[in-house]
Design a protein around this nucleic acid. Structure first.
Length: 905
RNA sequence: GCGGACGUGGCGAAACUGGUAGACGCAAAGGACUUAAAAUCCUUCGGGGGGUAACCCCCGUGCGGGUUCGACUCCCGCCGUCCGCACCA
């Protein structure tokens, strides 16, 4: 196909930016026309697609680089957060490709989940139809961004080909005992009518519906993530290219604590039959002498047993259950309890017994659901003890405190010190006392077993994955009256979702389907029933990164491909997935290794969490929100005002907030790309703000990016006649403008390379601006030079080509257009990254500051390798220096070569 | 409450391991070009003071101390903003 060449530029029709800008550029001798982003972008996207240059081959023998951005949920439209995320990933992909790596950069869809069912209820469209239509729309949008993706590997998690393999993984995990079923109290979302994981309950509300969560007992499927607690925690230290913040969050989430399992013997006549002892978990066995009660969770079996014959206790337990989840209000909830009448013997104090309470602040699913309370050294126990008049005996005397007068007031002492009131532990510090008490209890027998045992406990709980929904991956299990729970045999996979379902009632459409669940037992052949629960959608996203390495395989992974590509070298996404998605993926990697699907330990070697896209908000007098498109901003003298375009009513300009539908402060990426082009949007998303921080979307900012796009194009277009022809060698070392230009280009090359390597896009942007400014000035000077300067003309070509290559990862379409305009018939997307010439990076002379007593007084330009004595004498000879010294004796001169001179007087 | 991050011009930000604070961009002001506007180009742009001028001086990275020849950077103590976790025994 023919393309307009440099001096046969495009006809301009560039809708927005504002109509008045639709003009020919008439300054400058060359009169280049504006860059038409819309046309150029469509053209280059077509060229890339036709030449299929972003397809990745597993057979390629070059070093691999796997860059992945968190795949989107197909809501129907991309948002600015996607633009930022995918722009970053694409820069990395293009940069690494130019560096010679075999880059894997795939895209897919996190396509199961509630919104599709909600849409089905609202619009009577089938979830599959809705989802695939959304995917088609979003795919088009992503393609308009010019991302260098290998679309041949695309899949959606709702594709049968994908979830069939997920079912296989489920069955394999089951064989490895990494999946199990148990009756458990679950968080029930009454609006979505489904079970939620603990992590999906935020402040007592469903993370998606926002409804107040209730407690129910159901038999649920669980992934045994706790089997890897220790490893998931320990391996965090190996993830050096993860943000410290994320590692800390995961560490806290896993919550390892070392302590002691300890059994207290009950006083027989006070305890129900069979309750010979009560086991607690404690991390403070050193404080045992300060124990004044035992606390049981309201859900503790012993509590239930006692409650059977104690209506007060039964009522109290019921009350606790009601409080249970519904209340994040629990924050300030008072400590409450009820004495069961049971008493236990103190293990160390002969004859002493402690009361056993049921208390509302004790969790059943941590430790044993029972504790011993030491009020003096635990704030919760102290509050409880104060409420019920229990003893508060200090057993740790803080350093520096007076033994005689020390007493516990409103605050428990949780720090260190020395043991007191503690029998054989007296005089030890708490660590020593921990050891001594633990050893003692390990050696003591109670009921034929050691009374104590050291135990490491984790906060991390197993991952409940059962969801009572239709639009998810069916759990491949069959329930048989005779044989019980029977896995679907591999050869019967996949268990496909039925298509004929209804959404006109709440609850699970699968469960009420008339025929789907009816089947025969694979073991006995008798009538049986399919599991109607589907998997949590977090399961889908826990292994997609592995599937991309061989999405065509009829097994979950192709082992060789997975091992060759993984781990992902650079994973990029939002901080909101710091715990759930990333922890689940780490679990899946281990489980897939255990079941032979993968050979690695950690899925993501490098993680980057990008900031949000924020925008100011506009609110009218009646409290309604206005969208950026609806308001006009005027800015007289720094006082910005916003009025509604339609009515002229003034609206209040509110603070920056994450773009959201509720505040209506969103900007549609498609609008931006249609009017400014993808390159402008990408460039703006990468400029200014550091990528891990929030970026403020502003009209001015986009306009600035758009102006720069035009400026670059103008530079290239207008330099066509004055720069040296294609293939001209750069001038050999010398002096003058040509060398200065070469140095500037190579310096930029060097620093942009470093910045991209470290994902510091905003710095790379600044360096590119700087080089462009330099080139524009040099091009202008060259144009004015009579007869031209051959060296400068050659240096200009080198500089411009470097500039084009530096911008190519961020503004790929413009870069192609410029590359072509420079006379190349290759694609810049396929050019190797240029090498900076080290000899051009060092200057012969350096300018260093000269300080007197640490205040800068002058600067000194001197040979780079000047001797200290020469620097000193040159510095002391400076006018400003002699004046500032004013005859005072010089006490000391500090010289750091190439950095600074400091004269101390 | 616990844990973490961050406070630099009007704004987004730079500043490599302690070495010229404010690169680069946005906004703003002035000027050139234009019948005019847009676009483009040039200049100024942390605060205060002095000088006809080239320039010079003082203050300045949330606040108060400290270490150092020298601190945005390190240490101690505050204040503020944001984000996690939240009865985990």
């Amino acid at each position: 196909m023919t393309r307009p060449r440099l001096f046969a530029p495009y006809r301009i029709d560039f809708g927005r930016p504002p109509a008045g800008r639709r003009q020919r550029l008439v300054t400058g001798p060359m009169a280049a026309e504006r860059y038409n982003a819309r046309e150029a972008e469509a053209h280059w996207q077509k060229v890339w697609a036709e030449k299929d240059i972003f397809r990745t081959r597993n057979e390629d023998l070059r070093s691999k680089y796997y860059v992945l951005e968190m795949f989107p949920y197909p809501s129907g439209r991309i948002h600015m957060g996607h633009v930022r995320n995918y722009a970053m990933g694409d820069v990395v992909a293009r940069f690494k490709r130019a560096q010679g790596f075999n880059v894997l950069h795939p895209m897919g869809w996190d396509a199961f989940g509630m919104p599709a069912e909600n849409a089905a209820m609202a619009n009577k469209t089938h979830p599959a139809k809705w989802t695939y239509a959304n995917i088609a729309a979003m795919r088009d949008q992503l393609k308009s961004m010019g991302l260098s993706l290998d679309w041949s590997r695309e899949f959606a998690t709702c594709d049968v080909e994908y979830y069939a393999r997920q079912q296989k993984l489920f069955l394999d995990f089951l064989k490895k005992d990494l999946v199990y079923r148990k009756l458990s109290k679950v968080n029930w979302d009454p609006v979505d009518q489904t079970v939620l994981a603990n992590e999906q309950v935020i402040d007592g509300r469903g993370w998606r519906s926002g409804a107040t969560v209730e407690q129910r007992e159901l038999t649920q499927w669980f992934f045994r993530i706790s089997a890897f607690s220790e490893d998931l925690l320990g391996a965090l230290d190996t993830l050096e290219r993860w943000p410290e913040k994320v590692r800390i969050m995961q560490r806290n989430w896993i919550g390892r604590s070392e302590g002691l399992m300890l059994r207290f013997e009950t006083v027989a006549e006070t305890a129900p039959d069979g309750a010979a002892d009560i086991e607690v978990f404690t991390t403070r066995p050193d404080t045992l002498f300060g124990a004044s009660f035992i606390g049981l969770s309201p859900d503790h079996p012993l509590a239930a047993k006692v409650a059977a014959g104690n209506s007060d206790l039964a009522a109290f337990i019921a009350e606790c259950r009601r409080m249970g989840t519904s209340v994040a209000v629990l924050e300030s909830a008072e400590k409450k309890g009820l004495d069961t009448g049971i008493r236990v013997r103190h293990p160390f104090v002969e004859g002493a017994t402690l009361p056993v309470y049921v208390a509302n602040f004790i969790l059943m699913d941590y430790g044993t659901g029972a504790i011993f309370g030491c009020p003096a050294h635990d704030q919760r126990d102290l509050e409880f003890a104060r409420a019920y008049g229990l003893d508060v005996v200090p057993v740790v005397l803080p350093d520096g405190a007076d033994r005689a007068s020390f007493a516990i007031g409103a605050e428990a002492h949780t720090g260190g010190g020395v043991m007191i009131n503690s029998g054989f532990l007296d005089g030890l510090n708490p660590q020593e006392a921990f050891e001594a008490a633990a050893s003692e209890l390990e050696n003591r027998q109670l009921g034929g077993r050691p009374q104590g045992a050291r135990k490491v406990n984790f906060r991390l709980r197993d991952w409940g994955i059962s969801r009572q929904r239709y639009w998810g991956c069916p759990i491949p299990i069959i329930h048989c009256e005779a044989c019980g729970v029977v896995p679907v045999p591999d050869c019967d996979l996949p268990v496909k979702l039925p298509e004929d379902v209804t959404f006109d009632a709440p609850g699970n459409p699968l469960a009420r389907h008339p025929a789907w669940s009816k089947t025969s037992c694979p073991a006995c052949g008798g009538a049986a029933r399919r599991e109607t629960d589907t998997m949590d959608t977090f399961v889908d996203s826990s292994w997609y990164f592995a599937r991309f390495t061989a999405p065509w395989a009829d097994t979950p992974t192709e082992r060789a491909a997975a091992d060759a590509w993984l781990p992902v070298d650079q994973y990029i996404g939002g901080i909101e997935h710091a715990i759930l998605h990333l922890l689940y993926s780490r679990f899946f990697t281990r489980a897939m290794k255990a079941s032979g699907h993968i050979g690695i330990d950690e899925p993501f070697a490098g993680l980057f969490t990008q900031g949000m896209v924020v925008h100011e908000t506009y609110r009218a007098g009646d409290g309604s929100w206005a969208s950026p498109a609806e308001v006009a901003i005027s800015g007289e003298g720094g006082q910005r005002r916003a009025v509604l375009k339609a009515s002229g009513e003034e609206v209040r300009i509110g603070p920056l907030e994450k773009m959201s539908k509720s505040r209506r402060n969103t900007v549609d990426p498609s609008d931006i790309i249609d009017s400014y082009g993808a390159d402008t949007a990408r460039w703006f998303m990468l400029s200014d703000s550091p990528p891990e921080r929030d970026v403020n979307w502003t009209e001015d900012g986009v306009n600035g990016a758009w102006r720069f796009v035009q400026r670059l194009w103008r530079l290239v277009a207008e330099s066509g006649e004055i720069m040296a022809p294609v293939g001209s060698p750069p001038p050999s070392p010398g002096g003058g403008a040509a060398m200065a230009l070469r140095k500037a280009a190579h310096r930029a090359l060097h620093s942009v390379g470093q910045d991209l390597e470290r994902l510091r896009f905003n710095r790379a942007v600044a360096a590119i601006y700087e080089l462009a400014n330099q080139l524009v000035a040099d091009a202008a000077a060259l144009r004015d030079a009579p007869g031209g300067e051959p060296d400068t003309a050659a240096a200009l070509r080198e500089g411009i080509e470097i500039l084009i290559q530096l911008m190519a990862p961020m503004m790929p379409h413009l870069a192609e257009e410029c590359w072509r305009a420079c006379g190349h018939d290759t694609l810049v997307s396929q050019q190797p990254w240029p090498q900076a010439d080290a000899s051009l990076l060092v200057e012969d002379t350096v300018t260093i500051a000269v300080q007197i007593n640490g205040k800068r007084r002058d600067e000194l330009t001197i040979a780079r390798d000047a001797a200290k004595e020469d620097i000193e004498s040159a510095a002391l000879a400076l006018d400003n220096v002699t004046r500032a010294i004013a005859g005072k004796p010089v006490r000391k001169v500090i010289i750091v070569p190439q950095r600074i001179v400091n004269v101390v007087v």
